[in-house]
């Protein structure tokens, strides 16, 4: 069970969270102007990173807020969590956990 740092509540057990898929996939402002390919890209295509992955979590059984996280998929270490609307922190500036 992961320990996830909610940007609002602090470190909490994974049991309180729901995973929300890849982060920074914005819904097109004007879907009607999207081609079928663009729409399919938005709906279905996601990264499958080996390494750092920007992803969404929701603190469902906590403050209820969605937020974003950078997680290393090879070892489950969270490099950063940040609020919706904030840009992903630059990788060289996020603290790496002790090894």
């Amino acid at each position: 069970m992961l320990l996830i740092d909610c940007p609002y509540c602090g470190a909490r057990p994974e049991l309180e969270f729901v995973y929300g898929g890849q982060a920074h996939v914005a819904r097109p402002r004007n879907p009607a102007e999207c081609s079928d390919e663009q729409w399919a890209d938005f709906l279905y295509w996601r990264d499958n990173s080996r390494g750092v992955h920007a992803e969404r979590w929701r603190h469902t059984h906590g403050c209820g807020q969605f937020f974003n996280a950078l997680r290393d998929t090879t070892n489950d270490h969270f490099l950063a969590t940040y609020r919706v609307g904030e840009a992903a922190p630059a990788l060289e500036r996020v603290a790496r956990p002790r090894t």
């Binding site: 914005a26 929701r58 969605f66």
Partner: peptide, 13 residues
């Protein structure tokens, strides 16, 4: 409710 919260918080804040 979760779907509504998702759009409310992340698409149309």
């Amino acid at each position: 409710l979760a779907l509504m919260e998702d759009y409310r918080q992340t698409e149309w804040p």
